[in-house]
Write a protein that binds this DNA or RNA. Structure first.
Length: 885
RNA sequence: GCCGGAGUGGCGAAAUUGGUAUACGCACCAGACUCAAAAUCUGGCGUCCGCAAGGACAUGUCGGUUCGAGUCCGACCUCCGGCACCA
């Protein structure tokens, strides 16, 4: 508490009685703790941040990603909310009706793990964490409308998760199917991806198996085209990086389906290809190990056993792999395969080619079968070389890619190529029957049409995106509202029976089996259709369900009849500005886009995209002791910084100011305690300036509005007004582009200008005091979004009662262009593009005069004399450039 | 491999979008105040040459456009991120 120690001594010098007379309501010294407490109480009492739909102002929805209630705020949170809060304040002060809510993503694994480890009740644990973190947020002074707080684990909330599930079930958007999960054969439990990292069980190191389990899916793929196409609506508002990540994730590729007849049977095998132009080069069909055609291998075939053995081996080896966990590198295996003995007929050439099974073909992409064109596909090339399959070139490379009209493709073809690797570029078709001589681009189009006309193929757009598996074999989540009846099958829980309550207790063993399965009074129920005995679904929903629509709930958080009232949501949404971590670029942000489209189609919202503008904030990093490396703060690295400690040492305002000043919001933020000290220094300087002037203002007649004429001001005061208005213009622009760091820099410049003025309150004229007052009030209002507590305190100190947002509410200052205009300019003069001198001018010095002054300048003449003058470029108000030879 | 983003002082970063490169801050150096230290205040701070005035060179590299390029164009290098046996 270095701040207080120093200031106690100085307090002696304050003149007693002043405060009592009400002339000076500020302390002489800045005590963050004291004023932060004072204003936090004021905001709560006054309901300063409570937003209502009844307002003449334009609504603005500022949203930060809701936190998981782990129990403690970390610096990433602090950064996230400081950004959102600065914007919220700016918008409020600029006359918007701002919705700025917060809630808790309170379902999920950690609560369950805490329960297993420490025997606590997940509900109690979660509620305690929320209570603690809410206190931390309030101590930070984030301007939330706390009346709208929500938490996913409360039945009032998850009831609507379940309701949405029922809606999607009705629409066929929620369905059940077999799907693989990670299974530890030794412990007989289900494992999450994280728990089976490296392909082994995290507890017993046993190799994890993939097991098939009946699971619920949301048909995100039903909206795949829209998820891709609607990105146009948010382009510009979302970071390019995020859009790219989503595009990659959706993974569109255009090609064709082609059917190959199987000679041995009436069966057909369908392949997906993006290169139908290479089909004459197909020398095999290659199937995934799981492909159903394998069953068609005739009994007694010599190769049947080989195939069975191979398929078995591939399955076993795949179990040991967990591509999701390893991240990057060599998940690629050596290509292996066996011939099935089946023969397929190329529908274009009529050629008979063998059917193989191989480990490099995936069952869950395309059709699970490919035509192998070794000459023009790297994987097929590698495979063909290993198994001595023929490699036939059917695309000749072009030496020129583009030719003017009248181009004869044959002339541009390099026929002498010998294949040492697959040639994957487009080119000209050769060895391709009647199609020879065509260019790939044209051939793809025409051959697809031909296949379609012949009934053995069609154009096909393939996506990488899969449906969203939402079943979790966990306790701490929203129960999936489904009942299984012997007689009626799958029966959705009727809407009137929602919510399906999560039981108070369940045995949490951590074995990964659905804990709800062991709660008899939960499982056993009656069928809503036939009233017979029935069982409930015991899986719970993925927590990404909760976060897919939570910000709509903020609009109407206590609604008992619907997830939210349409008109309330329509008033606030779509979200104007969303702020959160890049780690949610794909999953959360894709799910919530999907959810919005689904809600649109059931008539709940009138738009396609939920979020207009997205800001992905950078990580907060700190040096890792010993290594000197900057890494994201984390417990395991020991480089974490506790927000509470920082608040105690420096106050919320300084911490927030530093965070926003130290780097642009999307960059990495390197934590530096000396940086916060700098922020404190700045706040103290501003504070003491306001303090020194507050008494003068209290007895001064000069108020903003009684504007002095220019000539009444001293030159210094005129310059101050100029700086003030330039700063207002700059900060306003910066805020609109979320450039908080440069806003703060501009505030510092203004405060430096005030300091340089060196005007004493007692000796200043009324006119000059006006200029100072204007500068200080502007400074205080524009500082408030970064440091609201001290902002409020100084606003009051300047003689305004009721707070920045209260009765005499502060207005964001307006820049007066006339006042911001410089009186005198220093115009740089270049000779041949090099800076040689500067001349003084006014903004309206005519071009001719600038030109003459520049040429007459002594230093310039040193460089021009004896040279031929070529030309003189005069950019008014900017520069003069003299070109000589 | 494909897609996206970025390279500016010792460090975090600015640069009105083609017009004085390095604003603002951190660190550092010097001075004032002090018995002293801390705090505070004042000044300095891209590199090289020079006693100085001043000059030369500097925004990853090389080239181009332009009176003028951190900014535009072309080629390349490096780093970060995403996807990846995706047919």
């Amino acid at each position: 508490m270095k701040l207080e120690k120093a200031s106690c001594v100085l307090l002696v010098f304050t003149i007693p009685g002043k405060q009592a007379k009400g002339m000076r309501i500020m302390d002489e010294k800045y005590y963050p703790e004291k004023i932060e407490e004072k204003w936090q109480k004021h905001w709560a009492d006054a309901g300063s941040f409570e937003a209502d739909e009844q307002s003449d102002l334009t609504p603005f929805y500022c949203l930060e990603m809701l936190p998981y209630p782990s129990g403690f705020l970390h610096m990433g949170h602090v950064r996230n909310y400081s950004i959102g809060d600065a914007l919220s304040w700016y918008k409020r002060l600029s006359g918007f009706n701002v919705l700025h809510p917060i809630g808790w993503d309170s379902f999920g694994q950690p609560a369950e793990q805490a329960a297993i480890k420490r025997g606590v009740n997940p509900r109690d644990w979660t509620e305690e964490n929320i209570a603690h973190m809410r206190g931390q947020l309030q101590r930070l002074g984030i301007s939330y409308d706390w009346r709208r707080e929500i938490a996913a684990h409360r039945p009032q909330y998850y009831k609507w998760d379940q309701w949405f599930f029922l809606k999607m079930f009705e629409q066929g958007l929620a369905y059940k199917r077999l799907s693989p999960i990670n299974w530890c054969p030794k412990e007989e439990t289900v494992l999450s991806n994280e728990q089976s990292s490296g392909g082994v069980c995290w507890r017993c190191q046993t190799v994890v198996e993939k097991r098939e389990l009946e699971q619920w899916f949301i048909r995100t793929t039903a909206y795949v085209e829209q998820l891709l196409a609607d990105m146009r609506e948010i382009e510009g508002g979302w970071p390019e990086r995020v859009l790219t990540m989503q595009r990659n994730w959706i993974g569109q590729s255009t090609g064709a389906h082609v059917d190959f007849a199987i000679r041995e049977s009436s069966a057909k095998v369908r392949v997906f290809t993006t290169r139908i132009d290479t089909i004459y080069g197909a020398t095999a069909i290659v199937l995934a190990a799981e492909h159903p055609l394998i069953a068609e291998i005739p009994e007694g075939s010599a190769l049947k056993d080989d195939v069975a053995r191979f398929v078995e081996r591939v399955r076993r080896e795949r179990k040991g792999r967990n591509p999701a966990a390893e991240g990057g590198g060599d998940t690629e295996e050596e290509k292996e395969g066996v011939n099935t003995g089946l023969v397929a007929i190329n529908p274009f050439s009529g050629e008979a080619i063998p059917v193989w099974v191989a480990n490099y073909v995936l069952m869950d992409y395309g059709t699970g079968a490919v035509m192998s064109v070794p000459a023009h596909d790297e994987r097929d090339f590698e495979f063909a070389q290993k198994y001595k399959l023929p490699i036939r070139q059917v695309i000749a490379p072009l030496t020129h890619r583009e030719e003017p009209s009248g181009f004869d493709p044959r002339l541009g073809v390099d026929q002498s190529t010998e294949m040492t690797a697959a040639a994957t570029d487009y080119g000209m078709l050769v060895n391709s029957g009647d199609w020879s001589g065509k260019l790939s681009e044209d051939a793809i189009r025409e051959m697809t049409r031909f296949a379609s006309a012949g009934g053995f193929g069609e154009e096909k757009v393939m996506y990488r995106l899969r449906d969203w598996g939402i079943s979790r074999q966990r306790f701490w989540g929203a129960p999936i509202p489904v009942i299984y009846c012997e007689a009626c099958g799958i029966v959705p829980v009727p809407e009137r029976d929602l919510p399906v309550l999560l039981p108070e207790h369940a045995e949490l063993t951590g074995t990964g089996q659905s804990p709800l399965a062991s709660v008899a009074e939960f499982v056993n129920t009656t069928c809503p259709k036939c009233n017979g005995a029935a069982r409930r679904e015991t899986d719970t929903m993925d927590t990404f369900v909760d976060s897919s629509w939570y910000f709509f709930r903020y609009c109407d958080p206590r609604d008992d009849n619907a997830p939210f009232a349409r008109d309330r949501a329509a008033y606030w949404t779509p979200v104007d500005q969303y702020i959160g971590g890049i780690e949610h670029a794909v999953m959360h942000l894709l799910y919530t886009r999907f959810w919005t489209k689904m809600m649109r189609d059931i008539g709940l919202v009138p738009f396609n995209e939920p979020v207009k503008k997205l800001l992905t904030q950078g990580m907060v990093t700190n040096v890792v002791e010993g290594t000197g490396e900057w890494k994201a703060m984390s417990k395991s690295l020991g480089n974490g910084v506790d927000p509470d400690e920082m608040l105690t040492a420096y106050g919320a305002d300084a911490v927030r100011l530093f965070i926003l000043f130290a780097a642009p919001p999307e960059n990495e933020l390197r934590w530096q305690e000396t940086g916060i000290e700098g922020a404190v220094r700045f706040l103290r300087r501003v504070y003491s300036m306001v303090w020194r002037w507050s008494e003068r203002f209290a007895r001064s007649a000069a108020r903003p509005g009684v504007e002095p004429r220019g000539e009444e001001l001293t030159a210094g005061a005129r310059a101050l007004r100029r700086k003030t208005h330039q700063t207002i213009a700059r900060i306003t622009r910066d805020f609109d582009e979320l450039h908080f760091n440069t806003s703060v820099a501009a505030l510092m410049e203004l405060s430096n200008a005030l300091g340089d003025l060196n005007l004493q309150p007692a000796g200043a004229s009324e006119a000059d005091a006006f200029a100072v007052r204007e500068a200080l009030e502007s400074l205080v209002i524009m500082l408030a979004p970064f440091a609201p507590h001290i902002g409020e305190e100084m606003w009051e100190g300047l003689g305004h009662a009721g707070g920045l947002l209260g009765e005499g509410r502060a207005r964001w200052p307006r820049a007066d262009e006339e006042l911001a205009r410089a009186e005198e300019l220093e115009i740089p003069v270049q000779v041949n593009g090099k800076l040689r001198s500067r001349i003084n001018a006014t903004p309206d010095t005519p071009e001719e005069e600038l030109r003459a002054a520049a040429l007459a300048d002594e230093r310039v003449r040193g460089f021009t004399e004896g040279h031929e003058l070529v030309k003189v470029i005069v950019v008014p108000k900017r520069l003069v450039n003299i070109v000589v030879k």
